[in-house]
């Protein structure tokens, strides 16, 4: 599905991502774990095209995306849920979702979206900025979903969300994967959440992957060591 080869990216003079290789399989949920400042967000931004790729390749279903602008990557099947949600605060909930729709959709939010997120239906006329953090997270996911992605990029979806809601989010994401037949790349610091949803996990440290394991083989203690300071 998504194949990344020897990816280098960074800001100005400083390189943050130093040659990453990985693949996300069909309907796979792959988690990237790492402490603060290890480069998770930078990796995601370079995948969606907000941070330029220095070298390396990003291929989605065989299509090279690394030189494309963000909106073209979205049209090819990538979708992005940024860290901190970053919904459009003055737009209503419904308008926020509609920004992700393509021209052919006619501007109607598909029913399955409100099926997955009933809260958003109840609040569709409210301004996005007036939603709670957890509701904004759902909104950001809905906005990404309506572009019919084949790979969903989720940057720290659990940040600032309370434990009971985190469990629910894990269930929702698996449901979305099954319903929409898509792959998910998610960055995370909460191990329990990762073990709940991911098929496989990678650990990133200073822009390099230092560990990889399938969920069934995970040694929780060793991962916890990577994540502790």
């Amino acid at each position: 599905m998504l194949e990344v080869r020897n990816l280098h990216a960074g800001y100005g003079q400083s390189e943050v991502i130093h040659g990453l290789d990985f693949t996300v399989g069909d309907s796979e949920i792959l988690a990237v774990m790492g402490r603060n400042g290890m480069g998770k967000t930078t990796l995601f931004k370079s995948l969606i095209g907000i941070v330029p790729v220095r070298s390396g390749s990003i291929q989605l279903k065989g299509q090279e995306l690394s030189g494309e602008e963000s909106f073209r990557r979205v049209r090819h099947g990538l979708a992005y849920v940024p860290q901190g949600r970053l919904i459009f605060p003055t737009l209503t909930v419904e308008e926020n979702i509609r920004t992700g729709l393509d021209a052919a959709s006619g501007g109607t939010v598909p029913d399955y979206v409100y099926g997955i997120f009933p809260v958003l239906h109840d609040m569709r006329k409210r301004r996005g900025g007036n939603l709670s953090g957890g509701q904004q997270q759902q909104l950001a996911i809905a906005r990404a979903l309506v572009s019919n992605p084949s790979v969903l990029l989720l940057d720290e979806p659990t940040e600032g969300i309370q434990p009971s809601i985190i469990k629910e989010l894990a269930r929702t994401l698996k449901r979305i994967r099954d319903l929409r037949q898509l792959s998910i790349l998610v960055s995370e610091q909460v191990l329990s959440f990762t073990l709940e949803i991911a098929d496989r996990l990678l650990v990133i440290e200073k822009g390099h992957f230092v560990h990889e394991s399938r969920r069934e083989d995970v040694d929780a203690d060793s991962i916890a060591r990577y994540l502790s300071v």
Partner: peptide
Amino acid sequence: LQVRATSQNRLIAGAVGID
């Protein structure tokens, strides 16, 4: 809609698929 989204956050507008 696209104008209002872009004027709030240009980078994110691009990242959700707006040209």
